[in-house]
């Protein structure tokens, strides 16, 4: 299992969280714990860059939904960038492809 690393950057559109490694049990809660510390203004877009994500289980999916809930509570948008093929298939099965805006890469996701 690869460790989870999350780095935070700021783009024109708002904060960008880069998820590297495994977003999975039991480490996925690190993302959930980090979320309340992210400054997010109404109208901004929280981007989760998944290009470096190697694995995502149901705990990881839970963390993604927590991110969405947080963004919506702040009246902000949420977008996923570079979703790996396997995770994208899971997102489709559970219907999450309908509630996240999906982008091929970080550049596309942070375009105003």
């Amino acid at each position: 299992m690869s460790p989870l690393t999350i780095t935070t950057r700021d783009a024109m559109t708002g904060p960008v969280l880069e998820i590297i490694g495994d977003l999975a049990y039991p480490h996925a809660t690190e993302l959930t714990a980090l979320l309340p510390t992210i400054a997010l203004r109404p109208g901004q877009r929280l981007v989760l860059d998944l290009a470096g994500m190697e694995f995502c289980d149901s705990s990881g999916i839970s963390a993604l939904i927590a991110a969405r809930n947080l963004a919506h509570a702040a009246r902000a948008d949420v977008a996923l960038a570079a979703v790996p093929a396997h995770t994208l298939r899971v997102l489709r099965v559970v219907g999450l492809d309908q509630i996240f805006s999906l982008h091929p890469d970080r550049d596309a996701a942070t375009r105003p």
Binding site: I61, I65, R92, V93, V94, G95, L96, Q98, I99
Partner: peptide
């Protein structure tokens, strides 16, 4: 609700998924 499709195994030797696309995770929204 966001669950993998059921499978139907028929008496004639065929089998296929019973698709339920677009169903959402239960409890998330």
């Amino acid at each position: 609700g966001g669950h993998p499709s059921a499978l139907v195994l028929r008496a004639d030797g065929t089998a296929g998924f019973l698709p339920t696309p677009g169903g959402f995770l239960v409890g998330a929204l």
